[in-house]
Design a protein around this nucleic acid. Structure first.
Lengths: 248, 248
DNA sequence: GAAACGATTTGATCTAAATCATAATCCGTG
DNA sequence: CACGGATTATGATTTAGATCAAATCGTTTC
């Protein structure tokens, strides 16, 4: 049994405290409840090892050793897998409060690339420490489970989107989801800047960039949204929801 | 803090022991390593509360309270979500050794239906007990994380399949994956019985049942597989892999 | 064993989105 | 600021897979 040694448990207390604190904040950040600037300040003050990742830089790469998970303090990331033939598939977009890297726990190596789409600040959480700590902190323990469970449930929604929805429905679902995520983080739900290119968005949604572009134009003609390059304005949220029809 | 009370920790020792044991077996079952009939016997002998679910019966339904996760001892399940408009989307197929219900942890209510496609035996694992127990059993704790992480990683593969692959590639990928899963469980990798209908398979793969049927026929003409209703025989595994080309 | 129903196969169209093609526009950089 | 590469918009054409339709095969039921 690879039981944690007692010695290990007594390592640098300060260090552990830092992690505890950052995860108390993470708890606020990561559960699907609203949170204010206070919690943000907390995270800001208490986060463990912070790091800046510049636009275009990798946070981690496929195959690199898994040692930590990452909480995004600010900025925007994409995760993607690259294929032999050069094709890229975007598996997710991640913003403030999201946790990245959970899919690597089982293999102990990262299974996708994480790239910053704008200069971002992340909080690196050594997974071993986190795991040890969660053994003695029930709240943390539960939260870890919840966060992972939520990711699984969310992925199932995306599978539904990719498997059952038409292109228009996918775009509508994406915009509504993004709006809701921005809103939950205290930003405007009605107007936001896309951080990804049409191509990356298409890759994520299983569409070609031309299709994405065309549907943005169509939505604009129909008065559902306003599009100015990357600036999106949701003008008729109900209309977008109606587009989704029976699909959740 | 909802820290587990000491009292709670002293509850029925026998009961806990049963769960411990079933999870030691689960460990063997659920990690991506091979396992023999011995471990199966273990699971058989030690599993907590076992239950039979007959073909067509629900193990759980969308919205029902989440109290336990389920380890499949034998049989075959589908999980699916039902929409307002009556459409069904199959989110997964699950067989011996798989764990179901992990996506419900975060909401504490099930987010999909689980239906037995053949009469199956499951092992019900009360999640609260499991969670408590994992606080004092590091191995169990790690395994829980690994199992959830593996599900996330697997879902990302499915997203890739739905987002990037053509119909033929999806079928090929599905058959190869199913074959590999059967093989890992000690069954034939080359010949197996499909438990789902063409419609359910199509729903899972984002295709219509006619398309699934046509591609099965085409694969058969090309000598890649043999099809007799639900009995599938993989005749040219390399050919199927070649079909996947650059896609992992 | 006949009837009834569900599952599967196969064929004939139709269509949503891909592909191909061309501008127009944006943006980083020397 | 002008250049060149990336990004976006939009039109014309093609195509993979959906849809519509019908026949066949299987299996459950009475």
């Amino acid at each position: 049994m690879n039981m944690t040694e007692p010695i290990q448990k007594e390592r640098n207390v300060l260090n552990q405290l830092k992690v505890v604190c950052s995860l108390c904040s993470l708890r606020e950040l990561c559960l699907p409840i609203g949170f204010g600037p206070d919690e943000l300040q907390q995270l800001d003050a208490l986060a463990g090892s912070k790091r800046l990742v510049r636009r275009g830089e990798h946070l981690y790469r496929t195959g690199s050793e898994f040692t930590a998970i990452y909480a995004i303090r600010g900025g925007f990331f994409k995760t993607s897998v690259l294929h032999d033939d050069g094709r890229e598939h975007v598996t997710g977009f991640h913003m403030m409060g999201d946790i990245m890297g959970l899919d690597a726990i089982s293999t102990e190596a990262h299974v996708c690339d994480a790239v910053a789409l704008e200069t971002s600040e992340i909080c690196e959480i050594p997974f071993e420490k986190l795991s040890d700590l969660s053994m003695i902190m029930p709240v943390l323990h539960q939260n870890l489970h919840k966060i992972m469970s939520r990711e699984i449930a969310f992925d199932h929604e995306i599978m539904l989107m990719l498997g059952k929805m038409r292109a228009e429905e996918r775009l509508a679902a994406f915009l509504l989801n993004l709006s809701q995520r921005f809103s939950a983080r205290g930003y405007s739900a009605a107007s936001f800047q896309l951080r990804m290119t049409r191509e990356e968005l298409g890759s994520y949604l299983g569409l070609k960039l031309e299709t994405v572009s065309r549907i943005f134009s169509r939505f604009q003609e129909e008065g559902l949204i306003g599009v100015q390059k990357k600036l999106i304005e949701l003008k008729d949220t109900d209309g977008l929801k109606r587009l989704l029809g029976g699909l959740a």
